[in-house]
Nucleic acid binder design. Sequence first.
DNA 1: TCTTGACCTCAGGTCGACCTGAGGTTCTAG
DNA 2: CTAGAACCTCAGGTCGACCTGAGGTCAAGA
Lengths: 121, 121
Amino acid sequence: MKIGVVAARTGVAVHVLRHWEDEGVVVPDRTAAGHRDYTEEHVSRLRIVRSCQRVGLSLASIRLILHRDEAGRTEVIERHLQHVRNQKNELDAAEAFLTHVLTCRHDLMSRCDSCSAYAAG
Amino acid sequence: MKIGVVAARTGVAVHVLRHWEDEGVVVPDRTAAGHRDYTEEHVSRLRIVRSCQRVGLSLASIRLILHRDEAGRTEVIERHLQHVRNQKNELDAAEAFLTHVLTCRHDLMSRCDSCSAYAAG
DNA sequence: TCTTGACCTCAGGTCGACCTGAGGTTCTAG
DNA sequence: CTAGAACCTCAGGTCGACCTGAGGTCAAGA
Ligand SMILES: [Zn+2]
Ligand SMILES: [Zn+2]
Ligand SMILES: [Zn+2]
Ligand SMILES: [Zn+2]
C-alpha cells in the first residue's frame, strides 16, 4: 500500500509517516522503484503509535515497544506502566483542581484550602 | 524571597523561573535594585504550575488558569477538563496494552486480538 | 574595603516532533 | 506517449520549553 493511501486511511500526514520511518518506529518495505510499501501490519502499528502518543510516549519509547528484539524493552515498558499509573492519580487531582478554580473566589490561592491542596500535591 | 531560595524550595531551576516569568505565568515583584522578589503566594502558584505541567498543560494554558482576568479563561479550563477526562480513558487503554505487550507472543500485532483492540481504539 | 557569590539581561543553542520547499523520479490516466 | 499527480531525498524552518554562556551589577561576610 502506498504512503498516500496510508495517510488517508490513518489520518497521519505523509511527511509524518516519513518522519516515523526516519526514527525507526514504523519502517515500511520498498517497491523496486524505491517507493514506500505498507502492509496491514504496518497500518496496525501506525494506529498503535498514535494511541501511545496520546498518553505522552515519545517516538523513541514507542519504537522500543513495537520491536520485541530491542535491548531494554521490558524495562522501558515497565517504567511507562508505572508512569501511566501515576498519571491517573495526577489526572484525578488535576480534574478536581480545574473544577474548583472555575468557581474559586479567593484572591490568593495560598489562602484557599482547595487551591493549596493542589499546590501541595 | 530571592530567586535562588525559591529554586531550592521548589526544585525549579533558576533559569526556568525566569522563563516562566517571561511567559507571564508567575511574575514576581522586584526589589529596588531589580532583583526578583517572590512571596508565598508566588511559591504556591509555582507548585501549581508543576502539577499542571505533569498532566500536559502548556505554559500558555497555565497562565490563563492562574489569572482570573484573562479572556477566554473559562473556555480553556473547560476544554482542559474535557481533555483530562479523555486522558483517563486513554490511560486505561494504554495500561491494558502495555501490560499485554510484555507477554504477547504474536509475531504480527495485526493477528493478536489484544494488540488489534488497542490499534482500533 | 574587598572579594565572592548570587543576581541581572540578552543572545544563541538544544531537543523532540513535526513542517515546508526545492529539485528530481515514477506512476497512471487520457 | 505525454501531462500531471504522487512519489523520492535532502536541506532548512518552526514551536514549546528549556539550557548555556557572556558580560555586567548587587550584596553580605572576612
Ligand atoms: Zn476556595
Ligand atoms: Zn481556590
Ligand atoms: Zn496476543
Ligand atoms: Zn498482542
